[in-house]
Computed example of a mutant assay.
Amino acid sequence: MGIQIRDEQKTDLQAIENLTKQAFLNAEHSSHTEHFIVNRLRNHGQLMVSRVAVENGIIVGHVAISPVTISSGARGWYGLGPISVLPEKQGMGIGSLLIHAALERLKQFDAQGCVVLGDPNYYSRFGFQTYPELYLADVPPAYFQAIAFHEPIPRGEVVYQEAFNAID
């Protein structure tokens, strides 16, 4: 698999939007607004990390990371996602490559840590785990995980950017 991971470029924006739509089209727990979320994060300067996976000149995956707010006032925390991989390329490790690359880039920003909302079995492979003291309102605790680059884990409620409410 000749996958190259790189930062998004201006010429990638339409391909990222199309990819994100396709990736979540049949996803069980999707709002089908993920492409709006990515665009809104980008348009509001909140897309801190935006990396693509390219195979044979075609974008086959994308990962986004944006800042989150924690009620305790802890700073330097970010949220992973959305993560998109073309349906026909899912299960081939592209998502894993993107997550590793995104977390490494985040560490370069001297981030304190990262949170993710998703399948705990999948994200635990990257070091994410549940911390009862760090939570997302109205979400079962098992599905909200964090990874700290520098201890300790902060306490409090996490709030994602307003862009995550985008519907268009």
Rank of each mutant, 00 (worst) to 15 (best):
G57W: 11
V115K: 01
G113K: 04
N43R: 13
Q90L: 10
N121D: 15
H44G: 05
H32N: 09
E133M: 02
R51M: 06
P87D: 10
V159H: 14
V63W: 13
M92N: 10
P154A: 00
C114E: 05
D110E: 11
H35Y: 15
G45Y: 12
Y122F: 14
H62R: 07
H150I: 14
G156W: 05
A64Y: 07
A74V: 05
P152S: 12
L80K: 05
R42Q: 09
Q112D: 08
S72F: 12
I59H: 08
H44I: 12
G73C: 08
L80H: 06
Q129V: 01
I59R: 08
E151M: 15
G73K: 05
R155V: 02
G45P: 07
L106V: 13
H44M: 10
E28S: 12
L117R: 00
A137P: 01
T69P: 07
A146K: 00
H150Y: 14
G127R: 09
V38A: 04
E28G: 09
K89V: 11
S50V: 00
G118A: 03
V52R: 03
G95H: 15
R125M: 09
N56V: 04
A64H: 08
G95K: 02
G91K: 05
S96K: 14
G61H: 11
A111E: 07
G61C: 10
L98N: 09
I94P: 14
A146L: 01
V159Y: 15
R155Q: 07
F149Q: 08
T69L: 13
F126E: 04
L98D: 12
I83Y: 11
A102N: 10
D110N: 13
G127V: 02
W77A: 14
L103A: 10
A148N: 07
P152K: 06
G95M: 08
